[in-house]
């Protein structure tokens, strides 16, 4: 039994550095940011005098922040919906014993390997509206050539589109990931289930609707969580692709936070945005973490 206690000590010692690092660098820092968000630090000189929720109040009164919240909701809904639909569609199609399935899969998934910065640089040119002197460029030019001039648009420079154009690029990058998750899920469903349904005379479509899709629900949940938290935090893509845009039509809270903290030196305001971001992500993640922890115990 002496050996066991020694092992106990070793196990604690092994995990302690990581636990302490996370305690300080995640929880401690969040606490510190929380404090700053309640303080009066506005300028290069650190000022930690507490002023209550004033920074939050003012933030919600700021037009830019209101636009940002609106943009985040639009972006999240569009990005989630299109990624899930495309991901599921591709997964179902690839599940039909496709020749060179591996090739298709690799093509759909490769954008995941790229940095959002790379994606942003490329899509900023693809969705460039062009100008009077240049004529059409990028996707607009393709539309012109295909005789689909009607579909041309100002993309991210048009305030009525704005953030939706960024969602297109984000969907390009992440929908393959959803496809991969769904496909892995489908492959995990025993073939007998489908066989049994076929014997009962169900059509392929009905099999997907009534058997496979319900079984894939946990995957949809995972995908929503993963894409949702990426979407709430999105910063790199906006930074490389559009910046805040005309009248902040492509601005997001994470970008505003960076801008106001490190360009405007409004540290308390920046901290307040960061805390709001954190709370929104936590509202998504914590129930999920609790849920997975519970189901794991049950397993």
């Amino acid at each position: 039994m002496r050996g066991l206690t020694w092992d106990r000590v070793t196990s604690i010692l092994l995990i302690a550095p990581s636990a302490i690092a996370i305690l300080i660098f995640v929880y401690g820092f969040i606490g510190w940011t929380g404090w700053v968000s309640l303080a009066r630090w506005d300028g290069m000189l650190q000022d930690l005098t507490l002023v209550g929720l004033r920074n939050y109040q003012k933030l919600f009164d700021t037009e830019r922040f209101q636009i940002d919240l609106h943009n985040t909701v639009t972006f999240t809904l569009l990005f989630l919906a299109s990624s899930l639909v495309i991901g599921l569609l591709l997964a179902v199609l690839l599940d039909q014993r496709i020749r060179s399935e591996g090739l298709f899969r690799s093509i759909y998934l490769f954008p995941m390997a790229l940095s959002f910065i790379v994606t942003g640089v490329v899509w900023r040119w693809l969705l460039n509206p062009g100008s009077r002197e240049l004529g059409s460029v990028g996707v607009n030019l393709l539309f012109d050539k295909a005789g689909l001039g009607l579909l041309k648009s100002g993309w991210y420079t048009d305030p009525s589109i704005g953030i939706k154009a960024v969602a297109i690029a984000a969907t390009w990058q992440m929908s393959g990931y959803v496809m991969a998750m769904y496909l892995a899920g489908m492959r995990g469903i025993p073939e007998d289930l489908r066989e049994a349904a076929r014997v009962d005379g169900a059509s392929e479509l009905e099999i997907y609707r009534h058997i496979i899709l319900p079984l894939l629900q946990p995957i949809t949940l995972s995908a929503v969580i993963i894409l949702g938290h990426i979407s709430l935090k999105i910063f790199d893509l906006v930074s490389a692709m559009t910046g805040p845009g005309l009248g902040f039509c492509t601005d997001v809270p994470a970008y505003f936070m960076f801008d106001t903290t490190f360009r405007g030196n409004h540290f308390s305001q920046g901290a307040a945005i960061a805390i709001i971001l954190l709370l929104s992500v936590a509202a998504l993640i914590i129930p999920y973490l609790v849920y997975t922890a519970r189901t794991e115990v049950q397993r």
């Binding site: 506005d42 037009e63 305030p159 009248g247 902040f248 405007g264």
Partner: peptide
């Protein structure tokens, strides 16, 4: 000040759109 200038700048940027 930087803070005022930023607020001024952002307000006018929104004005251009709205």
């Amino acid at each position: 000040s930087e803070g005022w200038a930023t607020a001024y700048k952002d307000t006018i940027a929104v004005f251009v759109a709205k």
